[in-house]
Structure formats: C-alpha cells, structure tokens
Amino acid sequence: MDAVRAVAEPRRREILRLVWDAELSAGEIAERFDVTFGAVSQHLKVLRESGLVTLRQDGKKRFYRADREALGPLAAYLQSMWAAKLDTLAELSEAAERAERSEGTDS
C-alpha cells in the first residue's frame, strides 16, 4: 500500500500523530483507541509496510516511531493538519471562556 492510501485512514493518521515525536510500544498505542489490540496491530502493520513507521524490537515489546523522512511531503501536510486542529480547539476554548465571563457579568 502506498503512503497516501495508508494515511487516508483516520486511525492510522492518529497513530502517526502519537508516534511523531516519541517512540511508543504497540501496547501504549493500543491503549489510546477504543478498538481491539488486534485492530491496532493491523494498522501498525500497514504503516510499517508502507515505510511510514520504524519498528524496534526489545525482547517481546515492539516500539514504533514515525519515519518522517519516508513520509516526504506528507510530513508537512500532516503537521499542518494537526496544527490546524489544535488552532481550532484553542479558538473554541477561548470562545467558551469569553462566554462564561460574559454570563458571569450579566447577573
């Protein structure tokens, strides 16, 4: 599977976000999702076979990290997408705070 098709799936994009700056074990990744470990393992397999994550094995544990170099131009796109989501979340939070303050002064 090519990289674009691999990151088209939302859970795989979320896995990439999780391992963007930090190496995580398969178990740590799976804990963040509401699907089975097997389902997460399949997503990790697709990402690994697409060359988008690296795998390091330490005993029985498998650790994953995003391979930004392999992502090429997709890396910048994914980072901008995640930044845009964070910007939106910050704007919503600030709007909620302003609304709370204005409700408090209306009493």
Rank of each mutant, 00 (worst) to 15 (best):
D106I: 14
L74V: 05
S102Y: 10
E23Q: 12
W82H: 04
E9N: 04
A70C: 03
E9Y: 04
V53K: 03
E14D: 09
V46R: 04
A30Y: 05
E49S: 07
F37V: 15
H43Y: 02
A83M: 13
E14T: 09
R48H: 07
S93V: 10
A75C: 08
V40Q: 09
A76Y: 06
D106L: 15
E14Q: 09
V40M: 08
G59T: 01
L44A: 01
Y64F: 09
L18D: 02
A22T: 15
L16C: 01
P73L: 08
D87S: 10
Y77A: 06
L78G: 00
R17A: 11
K85L: 13
W82F: 10
E100I: 13
A70D: 01
K45G: 01
G72K: 14
S80F: 06
A84C: 00
T54I: 07
A22R: 15
L86H: 11
K61W: 08
E94P: 12
E69F: 12
T36D: 14
L44N: 00
D2V: 13
E100A: 12
Q57P: 03
S25Q: 06
A96P: 10
S102Q: 14
A26V: 05
L55F: 02
I15E: 01
R11C: 00
S25A: 05
M81F: 05
V35S: 09
P10K: 03
R68C: 07
F37M: 15
R48F: 04
A8E: 09
E103K: 15
S107V: 15
R68D: 06
A84T: 04
Q42L: 13
E91Y: 12
E14G: 01
P10N: 00
W82G: 03
A99R: 13
W82M: 06
A6W: 02
K45N: 03
R101H: 13
H43P: 00
A84K: 05
A75Y: 05
A66V: 06
D58S: 11
E28I: 02
R13C: 02
D21H: 13
L47S: 01
E9H: 06
R5Y: 07
G51N: 04
A22F: 12
G38N: 15
D67L: 01
E49C: 04
L71W: 03
T88V: 14
F63L: 07
A76C: 06
V19L: 05
E103Q: 15
R98L: 13
L71M: 14
H43V: 01
L47W: 00
V4W: 14
K60E: 10
S102C: 09
G59H: 03
F63W: 10
A95D: 11
S80I: 03
T88P: 10
E91D: 14
A90W: 13
Q42C: 06
Q79V: 14
V4R: 15
A22V: 15
S41K: 10
S25N: 05
